[in-house]
Amino acid sequence: MSVSGLCQICESRPAQQRCGNCGTLTCLQHYERDKGLCADCAAQAQPSPDRDDVDVHRF
Rank of each mutant, 00 (worst) to 15 (best):
M1K: 11
S2P: 03
V3M: 10
V3Q: 10
G5Q: 09
L6R: 00
C7Y: 03
Q8I: 02
I9K: 12
I9M: 08
C10L: 11
C10Q: 06
E11D: 12
E11A: 14
E11L: 15
A15D: 04
A15G: 05
A15W: 03
Q16C: 01
Q16W: 04
C19E: 00
C19V: 02
G20N: 01
G20Y: 00
G23C: 02
T24S: 14
L25P: 02
L25F: 14
T26D: 03
T26H: 04
T26F: 03
C27W: 01
L28N: 11
Q29P: 01
H30D: 15
H30Q: 08
Y31T: 05
Y31E: 05
R33H: 10
R33N: 03
R33T: 11
R33V: 13
D34E: 14
D34P: 06
D34C: 04
D34R: 10
D34L: 07
L37T: 03
L37H: 04
C38A: 11
C38D: 07
C38Y: 06
A39F: 06
A39W: 01
D40T: 14
D40K: 13
D40S: 11
D40H: 13
C41M: 07
A42W: 06
A43V: 00
A43F: 04
A43W: 02
Q44C: 07
Q44E: 06
Q44S: 07
Q44Y: 02
A45H: 06
Q46F: 00
Q46V: 04
Q46K: 07
P47M: 05
P47R: 14
P47V: 00
P47L: 06
S48E: 03
P49F: 07
P49K: 09
P49A: 10
D50R: 07
R51V: 12
R51K: 09
R51H: 13
R51D: 11
D52E: 10
V54F: 11
V54Q: 10
D55S: 12
V56K: 04
H57M: 04
H57E: 10
H57Q: 13
R58K: 04
F59Y: 11
